[in-house]
Design a protein around this nucleic acid. Structure first.
Lengths: 234, 234
DNA sequence: GCAAAAGTGTTTCCACTACACCCATGG
DNA sequence: CCATGGGTGTAGTGGAAACACTTTTGC
């Protein structure tokens, strides 16, 4: 998060309110989080989440989206509010309440365009994070815990994969987030029985072993299941 | 939520940020929400949630607690943050982002002491709510939906009951929140098998039928289960 | 043939469902 | 003895866990 701008040519920002994004992706079966190095302000030279201020005339969800787009160049990622963090001491020198969001993305999909307040961005293994600025470390921790719960009940895992994926890739997403090993045969059966996957009738290419079938997520069936509530445990 | 105070004798409040509480309780097997009638400000004469402003020198959680205590006189209720609501138009005349909290309480436990900004408070059936001010109706709706999910995975239902309760009372909590009928024998078995209940070795009194056993919630077992993750579906 | 991952089969067990049924108490 | 809720029993079903096994492919 950058220090607050006092430049009056910029849009009017809400005082004492910010947004911070926990951007997550999977790389080589490991859950990674995007960190930014700030080139100005209180956090100059330090690493933190991708945050910024909320304009008086934009919804908070848009603020999160705008900040992400500014730094990553992408605006169609899965983005959801987590919750607000509002301890008095969380931000030095000034009272700032922040609203944390999390995004699930595919690290391979786009090139980062560090700009604005972040001079560099870097993917880091969530298990090997350095200390982040302010309370960002605890925000990440809370989001990860939330995600472990969420993935058991909603098929958010698909946002971390390409449109067409193999069952093993999907399993690796679950394993990365839940931090456990799963039984392959049982995982297959369970996920297939949900009817959330459509067989692409297509095989993997360029692998040095038997090619796996490719599947894609069936959004229509998903919407129906949502209304009835369903179980997603492994 | 009251109109912002400009009285400089009061503590300095954060601009554009408020807190709103969805206070829930069970009465006669029906899920009720506490509403307040405001006696001043933009919302004068109208019904809404129990809200207020956040002071510069208090954590947001404390703000929610303080406002609840001011209006209800109670400060030991189960209170948890839900999430922020930050549409530009949600509050008329001014940009205000609000952080919604929900509380689970026993309506019978205490007398309301309407004071401060709320001239009256009233319990209302969540299925028969009038239109509330601002976006409070949609906040209630979102909290109820959240609660339906949450009660399936965490034993929050106990917060709505007296310390000692019967299995049927507990079942009624689940039925009120989930808005379904449950099978009594199966509910008993499932809940007992979780080992979350301690038999008080005591019977109900003053009922005109066979007296039921009283149970209480086992916090210690609960803490252990939390760490391992467990299922609470019905 | 070997390695690596894809994919199938099978057995065991446990949990959930849907009931039928008996028990205790007050009126 | 009846109404009301408390509480137990049980047959059937389906899913989950564990693990052995077969298949396909590149090298």
């Amino acid at each position: 998060m950058d220090k607050k701008s006092n430049d009056s040519s910029k849009p009017h920002m809400i005082e004492a309110l910010s947004v911070d994004n926990v951007v997550l992706g999977i790389e080589n079966g490991r859950l990674m989080v995007l960190t930014a190095k700030y080139n100005a302000g209180l956090a100059q030279g330090q690493w933190g989440l991708l945050g910024g201020w909320v304009s008086y005339d934009e919804p908070i969800d848009n603020a999160a989206k705008r900040i992400l787009k500014m730094i990553t160049g992408v605006d169609d990622m899965y983005l959801e509010q987590f919750r607000a963090f509002g301890d008095v001491q969380r931000y030095p020198a000034e009272r700032v309440v922040t609203i944390a969001y999390y995004a699930l993305v595919r690290p391979d999909l786009y090139k980062m365009m560090p700009g604005g307040t972040a001079s560099h961005v870097e993917w880091r293994d969530v298990h090997k994070l350095p200390t982040l600025i302010y309370d960002h470390s605890s925000i990440v921790k809370a989001v990860l815990s939330h995600l472990k719960n969420k993935i058991r009940h909603e098929p958010i895992g698909f946002n971390l994969l390409p449109e067409k994926f193999t069952l093993l890739q999907l399993q690796e997403v679950y394993e990365a987030i839940l931090d456990v090993k799963l039984d392959k045969p049982n995982f297959r059966r369970k996920i297939l029985k949900m009817n959330l996957l459509i067989d692409c009738e297509e095989k993997q290419k360029g692998v040095m072993h038997r090619a796996a079938s490719l599947y894609r997520f069936d959004m229509v069936v998903y919407q129906k299941l949502c209304e009835h509530g369903f179980n997603f445990e492994f």
